[in-house]
């Protein structure tokens, strides 16, 4: 059984809101436990609206969402419980920090789920251990941390709810290269420790090529493609037509192919590229 299943999801924003139209129409897909899914698409393609349905923040205009086989809107009163099953880390999550100490802030989510006392403490400490929040930070004010550390703490706040599915909306936005790398490894650490399903919205094709199992391509509120990284990135022309692209290394390989070198078209990472070129070299050069 799929951990997450979306059937024919449609969301239209009512009235003439002056805000960016980010509607979703007729989206269906299902995700298996432990998968890492990347969502790509330009701004306004419906990505953010889509993910806000997964934990019941938005109610679909039409269609259904199933978590562990249960329709999340079957019981209106239980909708808050869905939020501990599907964690959602918004863009710039450090802007939601509010408690006096890092510990209290990370504890906010699990406390809302009903945890208390030792159980709560264990949960927070465990989470900190998984993703490397230093012990000495726990009694500090979250506002005294550096930008990158603030984000780590904010992400820990959602992870402490131990969601089975955790969704990140552009988790690396605004960070420097080191910060971006840190966030990507936090995500990997959480998944390795808990076996959770991970969904990441990203603009970086290079990052997606490194971490994702499957890619969801959104365009104008519709699910344009949902396939393995390989099959998505093979469709360079289709991606370019909707304002996206393939990783830079893939573009170099496309260029090589145009220049007559018989290279495969499923190269998306630097390490793979080096392997392939080494083989070609060893095989006596090219025709």
């Amino acid at each position: 059984m799929s951990v997450l299943e979306v059937k024919n999801l449609t969301h239209t924003y009512s009235g003439n809101t002056p805000f960016v139209n980010d509607a979703v129409s007729g989206v269906s897909f299902s995700v298996e436990k432990g998968e890492i899914i990347g969502i790509i698409g330009h701004t306004g393609s419906g990505k953010s609206t889509l993910v806000q349905h997964l934990n019941g923040l938005l109610k679909p205009t039409e269609g259904e969402i199933f978590i562990d086989g249960e329709n999340i809107w079957d019981n209106l009163k239980e909708i808050r419980k869905v939020r501990s099953k599907v964690g959602l880390v918004f863009q710039y999550p450090e802007y939601q920090l509010f408690e006096e100490t890092v510990f209290a802030d990370i504890a906010f989510g699990p406390k809302n789920m009903g945890l208390s006392g030792d159980e709560l403490k264990t949960r927070v400490l465990e989470t900190c251990k998984i993703i490397g929040v230093k012990d000495e930070y726990l009694e500090k004010s979250p506002f005294d941390l550096s930008g990158g550390e603030k984000r780590r703490v904010a992400i820990a706040g959602v992870m402490a709810m131990r969601p089975e599915v955790i969704v990140f909306d552009e988790p690396t936005a605004g960070l420097d290269p080191e910060g971006r790398e840190n966030v990507m490894s936090i995500i990997a650490d959480y998944r390795n420790a808990t076996g959770a399903t991970v969904i990441i919205i990203s603009h970086s094709m290079e990052d997606m090529a490194l971490v994702a199992d499957r890619l969801m391509v959104m365009n104008n509120g519709k699910l344009e493609m949902f396939d393995t990284v390989e099959n998505v990135f093979k469709n360079g022309d289709r991606l370019r037509a909707i304002g996206l692209n393939v990783p830079i290394v893939t573009r170099v390989f496309n260029e090589l192919k145009n220049m007559g070198i018989p290279v495969p078209d499923d190269v998306f990472t630097v390490s793979h590229a080096v392997e392939v070129l080494k083989q070609i070299k060893a095989g006596g050069g090219n025709a």
Binding site: F19, Q52, N55, L57, R80, R83, S84, G87, L88, V89, F90, P93, Y95, Q96, F108, G109, N112, M113, G157, V158, M161
Partner: peptide, 17 residues
């Protein structure tokens, strides 16, 4: 106003009632 909405959603996602 937009910011307040974003923060509300973020806290709701952390189970705030």
């Amino acid at each position: 106003i937009e910011e307040a909405e974003k923060i509300m959603n973020a806290q709701k996602a952390r189970g705030a009632d």
